[in-house]
């Protein structure tokens, strides 16, 4: 049965790497449903915080068009020659929307969209991470079921709640902090869910993360190559 009233306690204890929330998750009658709902809640909270942060950041800075035009104008008056100038301007114009979307500056539409994509992305990541780490944990001699693994690993998203601070404009949370803390929590979750000794549990948590990182990098390179081959019109 869903127990959202326990989530703040679960999240707090998971961040402190205590075993209790993982034990409760594993012993739940439907651990994966509980995990799914927890991931969705975290995703929605983070997306709302980022939307508010984006609105405040946009209102705190000059309009992005004015900023880009000022830079381009100065560039045109600069010392660069015709072709180089054209190339720089093209790169800047192409990269500008990406920069805006990444920073949340003048990209409220994108942030509105992320109200749906952030929870979905988080759930997708959790399912993939859970599935791969379950396979690796079983190979390492783990005893847990897939549902128990998913339930325990849902708590590894607890560190993403630090993104709530991005509600305040100009706050930046280091992605490396989120990922490393997630791996530490996942390690504790795997230890509990699969009753693994510390070393294999750590290897499974780090191995899963590195494997997914490698696959993401390969996909990004393949997409980049396709983009180059298609002349940027994909």
């Amino acid at each position: 049965m869903l127990q959202p009233q326990n989530y703040p306690r679960f999240i707090g204890k998971a961040l402190l790497l205590e075993p209790d929330p993982f034990v409760e998750m594993v012993d739940d009658d439907n651990p994966w449903i509980e995990g799914l709902f927890l991931c969705a809640c975290i995703g929605v909270l983070v997306a709302v915080a980022q939307l508010i942060g984006s609105l405040l950041l946009t209102a705190s800075l000059p309009p992005s068009d004015a900023l880009l035009n000022t830079v381009l104008q100065t560039l045109r008056q600069g010392t660069s020659s015709g072709e180089t100038l054209f190339e720089i301007e093209r790169t800047l114009r192409n990269g500008w929307p990406l920069l805006l979307a990444y920073s949340g500056y003048d990209s409220v539409g994108f942030r509105l969209l992320s109200l749906a994509t952030t929870p979905l992305g988080l759930i997708g990541h959790w399912l993939l991470f859970g599935f791969v780490s379950h396979l690796l944990a079983r190979a390492a001699g783990g005893q847990g079921t897939l549902a128990q693994t998913l339930g325990a690993l849902a708590l590894s998203n607890a560190s993403r709640l630090l993104y709530l601070f991005t509600m305040i404009p100009f706050v930046s949370v280091a992605a490396v902090l989120i990922h490393v803390w997630s791996i530490l929590i996942a390690f504790r979750g795997l230890e509990v869910a699969h009753e693994l000794p510390p070393r294999p549990a750590a290897l499974v948590a780090v191995g899963t993360y590195l494997l997914l990182l490698l696959v993401s990098a390969a996909v990004a390179v393949a997409y980049g190559a396709l983009l180059l081959i298609a002349g940027g019109s994909l």
């Binding site: 209102a59 705190s60 800075l61 004015a66 900023l67 000022t70 830079v71």
Partner: peptide
């Protein structure tokens, strides 16, 4: 110029 641009 950038520092002088007005914000909302």
């Amino acid at each position: 110029l950038i520092a002088g641009l007005p914000q909302p």
